[in-house]
Design a protein around this nucleic acid. Structure first.
Lengths: 138, 138
DNA sequence: TGATATTTGCAACTGGGTTGCACTTTTATG
DNA sequence: CATAAAAGTGCAACCCAGTTGCAAATATCA
C-alpha cells in the first residue's frame, strides 16, 4: 500500500504537506515521537500545522497516542493492518535517553475492574533504563 | 502515628505550612489529586510552596507520583506501611469527570521485558467511564 | 541574642500545546 | 476554463501547568 493509499483509505484528504508529514513519520522515526521531534525534523512546516495534522492522523487511527509520563504527548504509528481500533500495547520509557519504545508484540495483561467502570483505553508504561543506555554507561 | 510523626519519620523538617498541607492531603482528598486541586483547597498558600512541598513529600516517599495521561501531574498518598518504595498499583481515570482513582488492592500484572532493560517504575492506567458517571448520565 | 540556614511568597519565565484569523490551495460548479 | 466555496496552512498570540530566582520571613544553632 502506498502512502497515498494509506491516507486515502483513512478518509484523509491528500495534500503535499500531509504527504510529507506522513512519509517523515513513517520512515523517519524508529519509535515513538513527539510534536517537538517532528518540528525538529521538518523545520519548514509550521508547528500548528504539524499539531493539527497529528490530531487528524490520530483521529483517523493512523497514529496511536501515547502517554509515557514525560509530560509531553507522544505518538506512534499503528502497525495493525485491520480497521479496528488499535489495541493497547506496552511501552518502555528510558529515564536516561528519554526515548520511548513500543513493545508491539506484547499486549497489556488485563486486570479486574470495579463493577460499573466502562473501560475505553489502557496505558501500560514501564520506566527504566533501556538496553542501549544500560550497556553504555555515560 | 500522628501527622507530625509521619513527617518526622520521613526525614522532613516540620513547619506550620507543611503540617497544614499534609493534613489537607491526608484528610481532604479521597483519591488522586493535582497541584491545582491543592491550590483550590488552600488558597492562602502560594503555588510555588505547594509545588515544592509536593516534590519534597514525593521524594520522601510519602506521596506517589501518578501519570494518568491527563497532562498534569497527579499525586496520591502512599498507603504502604513499610519503608520500601511503593509498588505500582492500577489507576482508573474517568474521561467524563476527570477524576482518577487508585485500585490499591490491584497490583500491576508483570510483562516480559526485552533483555537489557532495567525497570524502575510501572504505570498502568485505564481510561474509561467511572461507575458514578456511567449510572448517572448527564 | 546574633549569625546562619531554611522556608516561603512574589513575580517572572518556560515549554508544550492550542486557537483566531488572514492568506493560500484545493475542490466543486456553472 | 472561470470562479465561488471549502479546506488547509502559516503566523502570531495566547493559555496553562509547572518551574525558578530572589528577597523577605522564619527557624535553628552557637
Amino acid at each position: 500500500m502506498t502512502d497515498e493509499e494509506t491516507l486515502h483509505n483513512a478518509g484523509i484528504r491528500i495534500t503535499a504537506v500531509r504527504l510529507m508529514i506522513w512519509k517523515q513519520i513513517r520512515h523517519g522515526f524508529n519509535s515513538v515521537f513527539s510534536l517537538y521531534d517532528l518540528e525538529e525534523a521538518m523545520p519548514t512546516v509550521d508547528r500548528s500545522t504539524l499539531f493539527r495534522t497529528l490530531t487528524l492522523f490520530s483521529d483517523a487511527h493512523l497514529l496511536h497516542n501515547v502517554d509515557d509520563g514525560s509530560g509531553s504527548q507522544k505518538y506512534c504509528v499503528c502497525h495493525h493492518d485491520d480497521t479496528r481500533h488499535c489495541l493497547g500495547h506496552v511501552h518502555l520509557t528510558c529515564v536516561k535517553c528519554h526515548k520511548t519504545f513500543c513493545l508491539n508484540n506484547v499486549t497489556i495483561p488485563p486486570v479486574t475492574l470495579p463493577e460499573g467502570f466502562i473501560p475505553e483505553e489502557t496505558e501500560y508504561v514501564v520506566k527504566g533504563i533501556c538496553g542501549h543506555c544500560s550497556t553504555k554507561p555515560h
